[in-house]
Simulated scan of single mutants.
Amino acid sequence: MHITTVSRLLFLWMVLGLCLAGKAQPPRGPFIVSPQVLPDKKVTFRYLAPAAKEVKLAGGLFGASNAPMTKDSIGIWSVTVGPVVPDVYSYNFVVDGISVMDPANEDFFPNERFKSSLFEVPGFTPTIHALRDVPHGSVNYEYYPSVEGTTGTVVVYTPPGYDQNPGKRYPVFYLISGTTDTEETFFKAGRTNFILDNLIAEGKAKPMIVVMPYGNMEARIAEQTGNPKPADPVRDSPDAMVRMRRFEQDLIQNVIPYVDKTYRTLADKDNRAIGGFSRGGGQTLRTAFWNPDTFSWICAYSANLPTSELEGTYASIISNPEKTNKQWKMLWVGVGTEDFMYKDVATFLNYLSVKKINYKSMITGGGHTWINVKTYLMETAQLLFK
């Protein structure tokens, strides 16, 4: 066979392959920009759904609860809202009654159950959680042997300079998300890495390692054994307490030893802090109270311990305030006045005051939101390890 014949055959096969490949590709729709933050802090959202009968924007935290969207001639639904107060927000679309994330937005809220997208309205001056021109730390995903033969996951922040200073060791802050959140939520929704980068750059926080574990052992076991995730227990119920204890055992027996082995930590009580939001705050308080020799710094965001539990399980801690106040460097509690946890947290703080247990507190406006959590994280990070 002549070379020219071979070349012609190869060319024909290439053309045929390209034609088939072209036919196999679905037609591309119009390019969608969503969300679009405008200079005046208004925000435009868009969603392509030519066949939909109704599309709404669900963004209650920025004043757009079930906001109707309008469809144009090619099937793109849109709405402009605001101006929106600078911050990080979650949202989703409701398409003919079905909640969906924004397919044009790659940033999403990590959660076991509901799925929503994230966007940021930048401040007129950079916020504490904004990406700034400062030295940045690293965020790593780690896997460790966990309960019942499962593989656990944690997200680990190391501060700027960690890799450049191999002889230096750092204190560790264990930071736990709330019910249905994942190990990524404090990173992606809470902007922990940017907050720490900025505070460290300003000299307001000590360089520290932040470890963000997953708080739902039962969901992990179910997922890795091919079973459906169990329903969330009623808060402070016996089932919830069993799960609290399982989390505590995993953190103490598996996570902390793994982190101390893998990272350059200052592996002692005074250089170890624990904090959390909502369920993670309850896990924080119980883990710290169950292990008074493990943590010196305790930060509870929108969380409390019931009086009956304090007087029963933790009677030795409550009955000896002088010893307790020497044992901990800081017990910090924050909550918003519109938070559904406000009354329980206020009762908790009043009880600590009566029993002469030292604490710091921060009462803000707002509710059970990551907007408040970022504020609490910013405040506590400046107090730790000093």
Score class of each variant (00 low, 15 high):
65 S>Q: 12
66 N>T: 01
66 N>S: 13
67 A>L: 08
69 M>D: 02
69 M>K: 10
69 M>C: 07
70 T>P: 03
71 K>C: 08
73 S>F: 00
75 G>K: 02
75 G>C: 02
75 G>Y: 01
76 I>P: 03
78 S>Y: 04
78 S>T: 06
78 S>A: 09
83 P>R: 04
84 V>M: 03
86 P>N: 09
87 D>V: 01
87 D>Y: 01
88 V>M: 05
88 V>H: 01
89 Y>I: 01
89 Y>F: 06
93 F>A: 05
93 F>M: 05
94 V>C: 01
94 V>A: 02
94 V>S: 05
95 V>I: 11
95 V>A: 01
95 V>H: 00
95 V>T: 02
99 S>P: 12
100 V>N: 03
100 V>F: 01
101 M>A: 07
102 D>K: 09
103 P>S: 11
103 P>T: 12
104 A>I: 09
105 N>E: 10
105 N>Q: 12
107 D>I: 10
107 D>A: 15
108 F>T: 07
108 F>W: 13
110 P>T: 07
110 P>N: 12
110 P>H: 12
112 E>Q: 15
112 E>K: 11
112 E>W: 11
112 E>F: 09
114 F>Y: 15
114 F>S: 14
115 K>W: 08
115 K>G: 10
117 S>G: 10
117 S>L: 10
117 S>F: 06
117 S>Y: 08
118 L>Y: 14
119 F>L: 10
120 E>K: 13
120 E>C: 08
122 P>I: 09
